[in-house]
């Protein structure tokens, strides 16, 4: 991922920041600058809590270029408690039987250990909810 692009995405990558349309109240992740429902540009950043349930999951056995050093890895789609569905890597799942519907939470991890220019790409992933209160 190109450095300026990664920088532009950092808030959504690091902490799952999306947007909210102030006209129709719809929440978006990924954030959108223009609400596709009402075409309003009156949108503001919205911080998702990072909790959700697993909608589906699979494993990437043949990682795309740039992801080989962390592969193979699990990926999933997560239904956030605020509504949107997010596609993401899953982490801390070695030895875990993944089940659709299980509770998961967002953590910030390394997505790419080393891009072509040597920097590290950090971003959201989901892991099975840590047992106990939070």
């Amino acid at each position: 991922m190109q450095l300026p692009r990664y920088h532009r995405l950092r808030r959504s990558f690091y902490r799952l920041e999306g947007t909210r349309c102030n006209r129709c109240d719809r929440l978006f992740f990924p954030g959108r600058r223009i609400c596709p429902d009402c075409r309003s540009q009156d949108v503001e950043p919205y911080q998702f809590r990072g909790r959700g349930t697993l909608y589906s999951f699979t494993n990437v056995q043949q990682p795309p270029r740039g992801f080989g050093s962390i592969g193979p890895y699990a990926v999933g789609m997560v239904r956030l408690e605020e509504g949107p569905l997010v596609t993401s890597q899953l982490t801390d799942v070695d030895g875990v039987d993944l089940v659709i519907g299980m509770e998961v939470e967002m953590v910030t991890r390394k997505i790419q250990d080393s891009s072509e220019h040597g920097y590290i790409v950090y971003g959201y992933k989901f892991r099975p909810l840590l047992t106990g209160a939070r």
Binding site: M1, S56, F57, G76
Partner: peptide, 26 residues
């Protein structure tokens, strides 16, 4: 796929279809 929010997370094209297939089966 979406370069920022799918491919940018190492989610391959076959993985997207696998996510659908598992959900379909479910």
């Amino acid at each position: 796929a979406d370069a920022d929010y799918e491919a940018g997370h190492g989610v391959s094209f076959v993985a997207l279809n696998a996510l659908l297939m598992r959900r379909y089966m479910h």
